[in-house]
């Protein structure tokens, strides 16, 4: 009775020991390949839809870190480990290339357009861009360093003095800003739950969920140049071979996913 128990115990221990010894042996051979991609928040839906296709094609798993491009650039500058950086504007990518963190030249892989969104209830009665300068309107933008925040403010400056816009239009709108959010998704969310009277986001941020809660007002033609999205492999990429493959995918098969989400061709 006791000896049977003891025998089983010994067998169990031997099995564990054997597994522990054998397990680490196939070093590297069966390790799944993976890459880390830092990408602008506006790319979330498109990239998350595209990732399974990439993994299926190459066998490499993708981990994303989405956020304001400025936040991501700052993290990379401080030494965060990533394989690929996809930014929503050239200014943040320039920070990376200037710091010598990019391997080779960045490539533009998509363009995006700005839109104005207001809650479905439209509390401030905004129907067009000039309406943002009306006194008392609560405007929600991304912080100036966040690409979409920069693009928006550049557009307002561009419109100031044009027919239909006062010369101090840009300043008037800036006075109406009640919050500088950390990324474009926060802007979209706040407007969709009725906080704020109007916000500026990308046309690609109008997901079905957001669309049901807001009214979209396109920017007048010429008000804002398209947003340029560059992508680059990082110099200190832990897995640069698969990183290159991802960039190639984004510029190739991946374009369909971007287009499906409303991005414009590069």
């Amino acid at each position: 009775m006791k000896s049977l128990q003891t025998m089983n115990r010994i067998r169990f221990c031997a099995l564990m020991l054997a597994t522990a010894l054998v397990a680490p042996l196939p070093a590297g051979a069966a390790d799944p390949a993976k890459i880390t991609v830092f990408a602008a928040a506006s790319l979330r839906e498109a990239f998350e839809a595209a990732a399974p296709a990439f993994t299926k094609k190459t066998g490499t798993a993708v981990t994303f870190s989405f956020g304001g491009s400025d936040t991501l650039a700052a993290q990379l500058a401080q030494g965060a480990a990533a394989d690929v950086f996809a930014s929503a504007n050239e200014a943040q990518m320039k920070k990376i290339t200037d710091a010598g963190l990019a391997a080779g030249q960045p490539k533009t892989f998509a363009r995006n357009r700005l839109v104005l969104i207001v809650p479905k209830s439209n509390p401030a009665g905004i129907t067009n861009l000039p309406g943002l300068a009306k006194p008392g309107v609560k405007v929600v933008l991304a912080a100036a360093a966040v690409p979409v925040g920069g693009y928006a403010r550049a557009a307002f400056k561009h419109q100031a003095g044009q027919p239909g816009y006062a010369p101090d239009y840009a300043d008037a709108v800036e006075k109406n800003v009640v919050s500088n959010e950390l990324d474009v998704k926060a802007v979209a969310t706040k407007i969709s739950i009725g906080e704020g009277d109007a916000g500026v986001v990308y046309s690609t941020d109008i997901t079905p969920d957001i669309a049901s809660k807001v009214t979209v007002i396109p920017f007048p033609p010429g008000a804002s140049p398209d947003a340029i999205y560059p992508i680059a492999v990082l110099k200190n990429a832990p897995n640069s071979r698969d990183a290159q493959a991802f960039v190639g995918f984004v510029l190739g098969d991946g374009q369909a996913f971007l287009k499906a989400r409303g991005f414009l061709a590069p």
Binding site: V140, S179, N180, L182
Partner: peptide, 12 residues
């Protein structure tokens, strides 16, 4: 940042 937002002089 979620409730008060982020604005110089008001909530920053």
């Amino acid at each position: 940042i979620m409730f008060a937002g982020n604005l110089l002089g008001v909530s920053q």
